[in-house]
């Protein structure tokens, strides 16, 4: 049992998340939950590189979009079963991570320079995806509706919720395991001080490339789930800046470099975002598009200014530490 103790809190949170679609049965609510879990998963990918490794990416859309497009294209253009396309799409996300990481980290880009380069990559992907025939160009790509679990499509929304949760849970357990091992220690050492890490025998370049590769794979998995949930992609959805922002906001607001940060952040962000949208709608009698984004901006400013370690950082006593 003691070997499981570091993972108990994660399992408890997963159990609570698993019950949600049973408690909330409305379609809107269930869609909201699935979307939030997908954002949390993308945020886990970002958090591994940004939160633990200190390498702030502004272009995780590169990985999200690659996963989403890859699974959609393999399925629609090449007729591959989506379950088989899934690992390939995740692998491609990892590959994109490895390539961007190798180029950026070999060139010793850090801080805002690294962020800008990742943003540039994502924008290039977006522009290219917008014109290539294989991605459907500006018209986008539609995954045909064919409700069958063998086809990654479920009649029951709860099933997709649990599937997404399975991914999120596996990643959370993996991140906790990494956090407690050699790789996690080295990654944090690189974040805190590269020279000191190097002097202790840490191959800084290798650690960073490993982190961005894994980060790319995780965020690509979120892209795959998004594609299969909403069955439609265009360049703005897959490679748009929105997901780069979501992926970094969730962990920053929830708690950088913690397993629970991205999950908490995603729920707080989207919870408050949705509430504000409905509230504004009832108050003014009409929707106010983009009001949730204004709110995200305000939340980010408040977090960075007053709680640089996120919501979890405000509760140090409750923070479950790997003891």
């Amino acid at each position: 049992m003691s070997a499981l103790r570091p993972y108990a809190a994660i399992l408890a949170v997963l159990a609570v998340l698993a019950v949600l679609p049973v408690v909330f049965t409305s379609g809107t609510m269930q869609n909201f939950l699935i979307f939030t879990l997908i954002v949390a998963l993308a945020g886990q990918g970002w958090n591994l590189l940004g939160g633990y490794g200190g390498q702030f990416s502004f272009g995780h859309a590169s990985f999200f979009g690659t996963g989403a497009y890859a699974i959609a294209i393999l399925q629609e253009r090449l007729g591959l079963n989506p379950w088989l396309a899934l690992p390939i799409a995740i692998g491609l996300g990892a590959l994109v991570g490895a390539v961007i990481g190798t180029l950026a980290f070999r060139a010793r880009l850090r801080g805002s320079y690294f962020a800008l380069v990742t943003l540039a990559f994502a924008e290039v992907f977006r522009i290219v995806a917008n014109v290539l025939p294989v991605t459907g160009g500006a018209a986008g790509i539609l995954i045909r509706l064919n409700v069958d679990p063998l086809n990654f499509q479920f009649a029951d929304r709860a099933a997709f919720h649990w599937l997404t949760l399975l991914f999120l849970g596996a990643v959370m357990l993996l991140v906790r395991a990494l956090e407690r091992g050699r790789f996690g220690a080295r990654l944090v050492a690189v974040r805190e001080n590269e020279d000191a890490a190097r002097a202790l025998g840490v191959d800084v370049l290798r650690v960073k490339i490993a982190a961005i590769t894994l980060s790319g794979a995780i965020t690509a998995a979120a892209g795959c789930l998004y594609a299969q949930k909403f069955l439609y992609l265009d360049a703005m959805i897959a490679y748009g800046p929105w997901i780069s922002v979501e992926a970094l906001l969730a962990p920053i607001i929830g708690g950088l470099g913690t397993v629970f940060g991205p999950v908490l952040g995603a729920f707080v962000l989207h919870g408050i975002g949705e509430l504000t949208k409905t509230w504004i709608a009832t108050l003014t009698g009409g929707a106010l598009p983009g009001v949730d984004l204004v709110l995200f901006g305000v939340l980010l400013i408040i977090t960075v200014g007053f709680a640089p370690r996120g919501i979890l950082g405000l509760l140090p006593r409750l923070r479950v530490r790997a003891a």
Partner: peptide, 25 residues
């Protein structure tokens, strides 16, 4: 191995975890 004149602790880690980064080698 070397030490630094301007000490460079890994601020986010405990003393034990700091030393462990070296021990992991």
């Amino acid at each position: 191995a070397r030490t630094f004149q301007v000490v460079q602790p890994f601020a986010g880690l405990s003393v034990r975890e700091n030393i462990a980064v070296g021990a992991y080698l």
